[in-house]
Design a protein around this nucleic acid. Structure first.
Lengths: 212, 212
DNA sequence: GTCTATACGAGGATAGAC
DNA sequence: GTCTATCCTCGTATAGAC
């Protein structure tokens, strides 16, 4: 049916344009953060005019929200890519490593951490909340499992471990180390992983299987 | 001499007003962060008009800079208050606990972590840079000493430990735990201290002397 | 359905009265 | 030496032409 094919083609073009826009937003959020990112910059980077952006996204907040939904989607992809039978601790470590690598690649969007209008807007974004809950529940399950396996301190609240993992995704330590220039990206990933799980007093972690 | 006393009195009044202003700026920076803090809010909170603020401070950046200089001064006070003969690890732990308590009291200013014009302005603030270096050198000494005493992992770069301690002063985990409401302030301090030094896999830390 | 051109508000900074 | 009233820039958002 020609009509549906046309619609499908338009749909595809639309999705493609949205993807390009969200990629640009993602990069700008990673580079400058929400407050310093301007809609003009997004439009310039994509190569379209500002009003065309506002046809697809209602506001700057909606733009950032869509970028965060995309980020959570990528995180969930990484979660689902973990082998189901792998030890929970290894899955948590792999996720942390991915998050640090994203930061080093400059593809981890930064939001204002303090209470802002953006935070409220995100919490009103159903898809964002849904994915955030899904991610939180998956990680909480892994955390409990790792504790029962004796690989994580069993007397730490699951909540705390979850918050710490989330917080490491925007840890300024990564930027500091990168700016310092004394370490390679691979070394930074290892240092963040080790200091998060073993702390400042513990020794090196057991190497990950697969030789990474 | 009357003239000098008059000048001294004016000086004192000026210092007092500056102190009140900086306290207000400090609170607003802690509550909203630099970008969301407006100069109007500062003026309103102090109870003076905006032009009076601009008589004392050249710009919003200068205002934030002075607040950060004040913060570094308080941090250095805590550093100097540590007994010189105490184990270095205990001094580091005490400083971290102080930083978390400041956050819980809502008195730890938040700056935009990413690259911003403010960061450049701070680096051009001589007094800020001087105090930051002084603090960094004091802590680096403690870190090396703790490593030689076998209380910190000796194979971690001093730089990394220093950055991690700095980063914990604006760790969103504190906010998350506070908002969650499941823990008392004292518990939050303990959890942050433990997770920083022992990580997620390590057991409880040895209690601090003095029964805190 | 994309752009030019503009309205509108917010916030940093200042002139000038008292 | 403090306030009222104002300016100017910038950034979000939109109306209207093509």
């Amino acid at each position: 049916m020609v009509a549906t094919e046309r619609i499908s083609l338009k749909e595809q073009q639309l999705r493609l344009k949205e993807a390009v826009i969200l990629q640009a937003v993602n990069g700008l959020l990673a580079q400058k953060g929400y407050d310093l990112m301007t809609v003009d910059q997004v439009a310039a980077e994509v190569g379209i005019a500002k009003p065309s952006l506002y046809k697809l996204f209602d506001s700057k907040e909606a733009l950032a929200g869509a970028a965060m939904v995309r980020l959570l989607g990528r995180a969930l992809d990484v979660v689902h890519a973990q082998p189901a039978d792998a030890p929970a601790l290894l899955k948590l470590r792999a996720l942390l490593r991915w998050a640090v690598e994203e930061q080093l690649r400059g593809e981890m969007p930064r939001l204002p951490s303090t209470r802002s209008s953006l935070r409220d807007a995100l919490m009103r974004n159903d898809e964002y909340v849904r994915r955030l809950n899904e991610l939180g529940e998956a990680l909480s399950g892994w955390i409990s499992a790792a504790q029962q396996a004796g690989d994580l301190a069993a007397d730490l609240p699951v909540e705390l471990v979850l918050f710490i993992l989330f917080a490491r995704t925007c840890d300024p330590v990564v930027d500091y180390l990168k700016l310092g220039g004394a370490f390679s990206d691979a070394e930074i990933v290892d240092l963040l992983e080790r200091s998060t799980f073993a702390g400042l007093t513990g020794g090196p972690l057991a190497p990950l299987p697969g030789g990474r």
